[in-house]
């Protein structure tokens, strides 16, 4: 009878009435939810495939340095501004508590942006778009990114990384 008492014999029966209709509706909705993801994977433009390569953190930092040396176009408050070739690779190194370098990208071009960390985990949170990706030491996380709006964008760290976490701000410029 009650949920704290042993059920009456013969309790095992099929659902009926509104309950049955609801189970059907709920199940159909769950199927919609399930289908949406593969659908978006093939048809949608925003996906997180998790493309990544193992990398030694210091080796990644060296790549970033080479990338900066080869493509530097300016400086802002001591942080290099770097313009990668359209369609090419771009590198951003996260460390406590900075993002290096500042990328300068062109609207409508596609870039392979490599993200990794020299020390702890960090969070790549691009504002004001609000696009978020995890940055891990030892993993070269590649985002194939196409800026479709111009302006100055801010990278906020959104994975806790020690006392200076909230000061860990970077930039991307799109022209």
């Amino acid at each position: 009878m009650s949920s704290i008492l042993v059920p009456e014999r013969g309790w095992f029966r099929a659902p009926a009435g509104h309950e049955k209709i609801w189970i059907g509706l709920a199940l159909s909705w769950c199927l919609v939810l399930t289908v949406m993801m593969p659908y978006w994977h093939f048809r949608g433009k925003q996906n997180s495939r998790g493309e990544a390569y193992a990398v030694v953190p210091t080796e990644f930092a060296a790549r970033v340095d080479r990338f900066i040396a080869a493509n530097k176009v300016g400086e802002s408050n001591g942080v290099p501004i770097v313009e990668p070739a359209p369609g090419g690779d771009a590198f951003v190194l996260a460390r406590m508590w900075s993002w290096n370098p500042i990328l300068k990208l062109r609207k409508g071009e596609t870039y392979r942006v490599h993200l990794s960390s020299l020390d702890l985990q960090h969070g790549f949170s691009l504002q004001p778009l609000n696009m978020n990706f995890q940055v891990m030491p030892g993993y070269d996380h590649v985002l194939t990114l196409t800026p479709t709006s111009a302006g100055s964008f801010t990278i906020v760290c959104n994975e806790f990384c020690g006392i200076g976490h909230s000061n860990m701000i970077g930039h991307i410029i799109v022209e």
Partner: peptide, 11 residues
């Protein structure tokens, strides 16, 4: 949801 998480993760 896999892709929607892009605009929500760690916010």
């Amino acid at each position: 949801t896999q892709q929607i998480n892009i605009i929500a993760h760690n916010t």
